[in-house]
C-alpha cells in the first residue's frame, strides 16, 4: 500500500517537472502534459489519426508473427546446439558474436530483401527476439545437473520424460527469462522497423507525427505504444506463471 502511494507520488512529481520544463521549451520540440492530454483524446477518439486501430492491429500481427518465428527458431536452435556438444561448441561463439552486433545494422538489407511492407518488420523483430531465446536455452541446457538425468534414467525415464521432468524444470527460470526478453525485443524490433521505414503500423504513425512536428500527437502515440509494450510484458508474466504451474 505504502509502495503504491509512493509510486503515485513519484508519478505526480515527474509529471509536474515535465509540465514546468515543457512549458519553458520550444513548443515545436517539447510539449507539457497539459497539451498531450487533448492530443491523446483526439487520438483515441480517432480524430487525429482515424487509421489508429488498423495500424495497431497490423503492428500486433507483425509482433505476433515475429515472436512465433523467434520462439520456434530460438527453441529449435537452442536445443540442437545445447544437446549436441560439438555443434554447440562450433556455433556458440558465432551466435554470441552476432548477438553483440547492433542489430540495426542489418535493417537496410532486410528492407532490400523483404520490401517496405510487414515482412521486413517481422524479419527485424525476429532477428532481435531470436538471440536471447536461443542463448537462454543454451544456458538452460548447461544448467541441467547431469546427476538428475542419471537419477531419472535409473527410475525408468526415457528421453521424453527426462526432457519434461528434469530438463524443463531445471531450466525453467532461465528459459522463461529468455522468452520474456525475446518478446520485449520482438516488440522493439517491429516498432523500430516501422519507424525506420514503412507505410503502415503504429511506427509509421509515429514517424508521420514527428516528421510534421506534430509533437503533441507524437507524444500521444508514444503513450499508446508504451501501453502496448507494458501489455505484452504483463501477458508474458502470465505465461510465466502458467509455465511454473505446468511443471509442478
Amino acid at each position: 500500500m505504502r509502495v503504491l502511494w509512493l509510486r503515485l507520488g513519484l508519478l505526480a512529481a515527474l509529471l509536474a517537472v515535465w509540465e514546468v520544463a515543457g512549458r519553458a521549451a520550444n513548443p515545436l520540440l517539447a510539449v507539457p502534459p497539459s497539451a498531450v492530454l487533448p492530443a491523446l483524446r483526439d487520438l483515441l477518439l480517432l480524430r487525429s489519426y482515424p487509421e489508429l486501430p488498423a495500424s495497431l492491429w497490423l503492428t500486433l500481427r507483425e509482433i505476433g508473427a515475429a515472436y512465433m518465428l523467434a520462439v520456434a527458431a530460438g527453441l529449435g536452435c537452442g536445443f540442437v546446439l545445447g544437446m549436441h556438444r560439438l555443434v554447440g561448441r562450433v556455433w556458440g561463439p558465432m551466435l554470441a558474436a552476432l548477438y553483440a552486433v547492433p542489430a540495426v545494422v542489418w535493417y537496410p538489407s532486410l528492407m532490400l530483401f523483404f520490401g517496405l511492407d510487414a515482412a521486413s518488420k517481422i524479419a527485424f523483430g525476429f532477428l532481435l527476439g531470436f538471440f536471447p531465446i536461443t542463448l537462454s536455452v543454451l544456458a538452460g541446457v548447461r544448467q541441467v545437473n547431469p546427476q538428475f538425468v542419471t537419477v531419472a534414467r535409473a527410475y525408468g525415464a526415457g528421453a521424453v520424460t527426462v526432457f519434461r521432468r528434469v530438463m524443463l524444470p531445471s531450466m525453467l527460470f532461465t528459459l522463461v527469462g529468455g522468452l520474456r526478453t525475446g518478446l520485449a525485443l520482438c516488440v522493439i524490433g517491429v516498432i523500430v522497423g516501422e519507424i525506420l521505414g514503412s507505410k503502415a503500423g503504429i511506427g509509421a504513425l509515429i514517424n508521420h507525427a514527428y516528421g510534421l512536428l506534430r509533437t503533441a500527437d507524437y507524444v500521444a502515440l508514444v503513450l499508446v505504444t508504451l501501453l502496448l509494450v507494458v501489455g505484452s510484458d504483463v501477458l508474458a508474466s502470465l505465461l510465466e506463471r502458467r509455465a511454473r504451474q505446468w511443471t509442478e
Binding site: Q147, T150, V151, V166, L172
Partner: peptide, 9 residues
C-alpha cells in the same frame, strides 16, 4: 545415489 540427487523443485 551418493549425493541423494533429489529434485529441488
Amino acid at each position: 545415489f551418493q549425493d541423494a540427487g533429489l529434485f529441488p523443485w
